[in-house]
């Protein structure tokens, strides 16, 4: 039971592999804890109502709208944001696939898409296109990059199947930063 009149609630969280003992107001949203307390600003707020999907994070491996989740309810949970998808200095195969398929436009929705892809591939390493579309349609994209993002998940699945999970970020930057990748 959470006493809404209490000033703070103690919560033990593991975020991106790091342990935190937090004291948060009972009505604090996970979104605010992550963005403003922990500085994890890949978590975006697009609507605050679970409609746009830009705030999606993984809680114990499952997708969760951090705007609909009270931090106080997560004692003992493990949270992953885009910052923690790969170890420090690494880039996850899904991120690389999103880069290579060239779908990123404004990038505001991208974290939500990538984390949803992660949740999907964890459950089903070889999803068909219909499943990819169903899962990835949890986030809205106004720039219209959906086709590219769907293709990215298929590519990521291929990398993961080949055992290529993490890539060195510096090498990726060297290889891809403003590099010609096609006609």
């Amino acid at each position: 039971m959470i006493m809404m009149e209490e000033k703070v609630v103690k919560v033990h969280l593991k975020v991106n592999g790091k342990e935190y003992e937090l004291e948060v107001p009972p009505n604090e949203r996970l979104l605010d804890t992550l963005r403003y307390r922990l500085g994890l600003t890949s978590v975006k707020e697009g609507c605050g109502r679970g409609e746009c999907g830009t705030c999606i994070v993984l809680v114990n491996g499952m997708p969760r709208h951090s705007c609909l989740t009270l931090t106080a309810t997560l004692d003992g949970s493990e949270v992953t944001t885009l910052e923690g998808l790969a170890p420090e200095g690494k880039i996850h195969a899904i991120q690389l696939a999103f880069l290579e398929t060239k779908g990123v436009q404004c990038g505001f929705c991208t974290p939500g898409f990538i984390l949803m892809a992660k949740a999907l591939l964890d459950k089903n390493p070889d999803p068909n296109m219909e499943e990819v579309k169903e899962w990835l349609s949890s986030t809205l994209c106004r720039c219209g990059s959906y086709h590219y993002y769907f293709a990215a998940v298929k590519l990521a699945a291929k990398y993961i199947k080949e055992g290529k999970i993490y890539f060195d970020e510096e090498e990726v930057r060297k290889k891809y930063y403003m590099k010609v990748v096609g006609r």
Binding site: G50, R64, T139
Partner: peptide, 12 residues
């Protein structure tokens, strides 16, 4: 299930 909210919402 297929028409409810979005996949992420169906998990919550």
């Amino acid at each position: 299930f297929k028409l409810f909210g979005t996949m992420a919402l169906r998990m919550e």
